[in-house]
């Protein structure tokens, strides 16, 4: 019985990690499209989560995101990633302009009631994801317009103990925006049985 239980848990973690990774892919694409980090004609429409999502067609970018997300997926499986940040930086001055922060939290199963707790239906998770993606899209209406060309950077906040592929991932600057010039907006969150993702955006705002 105990082994069966553990088995189920492992599958759930795997499935949940895949789901979260996939969410990051679409969220990152949506941000890159909406904030015009890449030209809009690079993106094509894909049906996902019951809505159309714009996904890049640029092979180089696609591969780049793929490489990052495959590592994120591994970290999710070991539970060693705590936060993912997509920072939008000015291309010329390298000042961070926006930080899209996704907190990854492990949901601890209730100690005793884990056997009785029914898993969250897929449809509900999808509708939560849909809500976040829609919120990213709607953010454009009040985020400051970025006039300058930008680049992006993805940061992963991990435990000390995380396995880091040498040479591929390196310790970096958090690309933080000075607190006095930063505004933050909390966004919706979504959760699976194992993970809880909380989204937030901080942007540079100067009078």
């Amino acid at each position: 019985m105990a082994t069966k239980q553990a088995n189920r848990q492992a599958i759930t973690l795997k499935g949940s990690s895949a789901l979260v990774t996939e969410f990051f892919k679409y969220a990152a694409n949506t941000i890159l499209f909406q904030r015009e980090v890449y030209p809009s004609d690079d993106f094509h429409m894909v049906k996902k989560y019951g809505q159309t999502v714009l996904v890049t067609q640029d092979l180089a970018l696609e591969n780049y995101l793929e490489r990052i997300l495959s590592q994120v997926h591994k970290w999710l499986l070991t539970g060693s990633v705590t936060q993912l940040v997509l920072a939008i930086i000015s291309k010329d001055t390298r000042t961070p302009l926006e930080r899209w922060v996704f907190d990854v939290k492990l949901v601890e199963p209730p100690a005793d009631a884990s056997t009785t707790r029914e898993s969250k239906p897929e449809a509900e998770i999808q509708s939560e994801i849909r809500a976040i993606l829609k919120q990213i899209v709607s953010m454009v209406t009040y985020l400051p317009v970025i006039q300058e060309p930008t680049v992006f950077n993805i940061l992963a906040y991990t435990n000390e103990s995380a396995d880091v592929p040498a040479g591929e991932w390196v310790d970096t600057d958090p690309l933080a925006i000075e607190a006095s010039k930063s505004q933050q907006v909390k966004m919706r969150s979504f959760s699976t049985d194992v993970h809880r993702i909380e989204a937030m955006v901080a942007y540079r705002y100067e009078e």
């Binding site: 640029d58 092979l59 180089a60 970018l61 780049y64 950077n153 991990t158 390196v170």
Partner: peptide
């Protein structure tokens, strides 16, 4: 302090760099 901020070693590709 036992937390690390990691970034991928490569910079993201420039727009339409592949074509």
């Amino acid at each position: 302090v036992n937390r690390r901020i990691l970034g991928y070693h490569e910079q993201p590709p420039a727009a339409s760099s592949s074509d």
